[in-house]
């Protein structure tokens, strides 16, 4: 359409940028429709949406509220009430330290502390700046026989020591460098 090639490219990118949120909402509409658009299914909707986006962006929450005829405060209230929902984007990998009672008495928090120390993470800043991984704790994953355990992207590492945990996380970091 545009005679000027470079200008055409520029307008294509701006067009894409402005189109992106609409495309997202298109998928969002699908999800809401799949759940019958009922506000009683709010939690199920949020679960699917979070799977899609890996977190719950604020504008998505507002959109859901309008679509379900709920106040944004209601939707926000539900999203912040349950631990499954995250309003912050998470890293590519999830590093989870189990802090159930069995793991706790096997000093699971010393593993958590060791990773925090190595990667300079702290309360409120548990995702590495390059978005590589997010460090989390979980109340119990049910393999207490292997305590203490660390879960990296769904894979369980049992009887873990602070040193071993840091080594495993280091390999994640090096894998990224290879790419």
């Amino acid at each position: 359409m545009n005679a000027d090639q470079s200008k055409g490219q520029v307008s294509a990118t701006t067009q894409m940028a402005s189109e992106r949120p609409q495309r997202q909402f298109f998928r969002l509409n699908e999800i809401i429709a799949e759940q019958g658009g009922r506000n009683g299914n709010l939690i199920a909707i949020l679960q699917v949406v979070q799977q899609e986006y890996r977190y719950l962006p604020e504008e998505v929450l507002t959109y859901i509220a309008v679509a379900l005829d709920l106040s944004p405060a209601t939707v926000f209230g539900v999203a912040t009430f349950f631990t499954q929902f995250s309003l912050e984007p998470k890293g590519r990998y999830l590093v989870t330290i189990c802090d159930g009672t069995a793991c706790h008495v096997q000093r699971s928090m010393s593993i958590y502390d060791a990773i925090c120390r190595k990667y300079n993470l702290k309360e409120g800043q548990l995702t590495t700046p390059d978005m590589l991984f997010t460090l989390e704790t979980v109340a119990c994953v049910g393999c207490c026989g292997l305590a203490p355990v660390m879960i990296v992207n769904g894979e369980v590492h049992g009887h873990i020591t602070p040193d071993a945990a840091v080594t495993i996380v280091d390999t994640l970091a090096s894998r990224k460098e290879e790419k």
């Binding site: 299914n41 939690i43 209601t74 209230g77 539900v78 009430f81 349950f82 499954q84 929902f85």
Partner: peptide, 25 residues
């Protein structure tokens, strides 16, 4: 099947019921 989104207090019956209804438990 309803998949609970993680709240210990939802073990309490009235809270559990509210969360199935899509509200804060």
């Amino acid at each position: 099947v309803f998949q609970g989104a993680g709240a210990f207090v939802c073990g309490e019956s009235t809270a559990l019921v509210l969360s199935i209804e899509g509200k804060r438990g």
